[in-house]
């Protein structure tokens, strides 16, 4: 247990590193291969992707915090179930709050909100970090990983919405006049909207990241 970290100031170098690493070289999606599950189906449009990213960040951070606080009390035999129940409870809260305050988005996300529970990032970070570290460090780690995950989501959604619908956040970016239907030359790329295209985008992101950072390459 690296409890020493907890003795540093609240925004010390170690904590900043915890926040920054998952966004770059320890990105949970492209490097650690976690949490792709519930992620890609919501990336056809930017808005649901951002809401998903925020929800996952919140759940990861809070569940890391709670389980880090409880880490010395959890009975070994039911460890996984306790983790799952706490995560499921937090996700239920997120889902109920979305239904009450962001109804439109909650409809678009539909079952994918529930699937945050089995998002491997959350369970992965609890097991790998929160159970062995102090609450504050765990909380920061949760935020960092949530953001790293959110970043990939937002990048993919940005390109898919722009190329596929010609809009961003629902607002038109590519002028109507350019479209072939209105006498222009431009057509939306329908292929980009298709679900499998999300995978291809992530593949491309991995490619670029590994091209720039040779350490990450696999044999």
């Amino acid at each position: 247990m690296s409890e020493a970290k907890g003795k540093q100031s609240w925004f010390g170098a170690a904590h900043r590193k915890l926040l920054a690493e998952p966004i770059g070289i320890k990105n949970p999606v492209t490097v650690l291969v976690l949490g792709i599950c519930s992620a890609l189906a919501v990336t056809a449009k930017l808005q649901p992707a951002v809401v998903m990213a925020v929800s996952v960040t919140a759940v990861t951070a809070v569940s890391n915090l709670v389980l880090s606080l409880l880490r010395r009390t959890i009975p070994n035999r039911i460890r996984i179930i306790v983790q799952l129940i706490i995560v499921a409870a937090l996700v239920t809260v997120v889902s109920e709050v979305l239904k009450a305050f962001a109804y439109d988005v909650s409809k678009q996300l539909s079952v994918f909100v529930g699937l945050i529970i089995t998002n491997c990032i959350i369970m992965g970070r609890i097991e790998a970090f929160a159970l062995g570290n102090g609450p504050w460090a765990s909380f920061i780690d949760g935020i960092g990983n949530g953001l790293g995950y959110g970043m990939i989501l937002v990048i993919v959604a940005f390109f898919r919405e722009l190329l596929g619908s010609g809009t961003l956040w629902g607002y038109r970016v590519i002028p109507e006049g350019l479209y072939a239907a209105n006498g222009g030359f431009y057509e939306n790329n329908g292929l980009v909207i298709m679900p499998p295209m999300a995978l291809i985008f992530v593949g491309a992101i991995i490619w670029i990241q590994r091209k720039r950072n040779k350490n990450l390459m696999e044999e």
Partner: peptide, 23 residues
């Protein structure tokens, strides 16, 4: 004893009741 049956059982019960009330 964190591995005792009684402890596990009480822990699970308290957790479930707490979580259910909260939700």
């Amino acid at each position: 004893n964190r591995n005792g049956n009684l402890y596990t059982f009480i822990y699970a019960t308290v957790l479930v009741v707490l979580v259910a009330t909260l939700l």
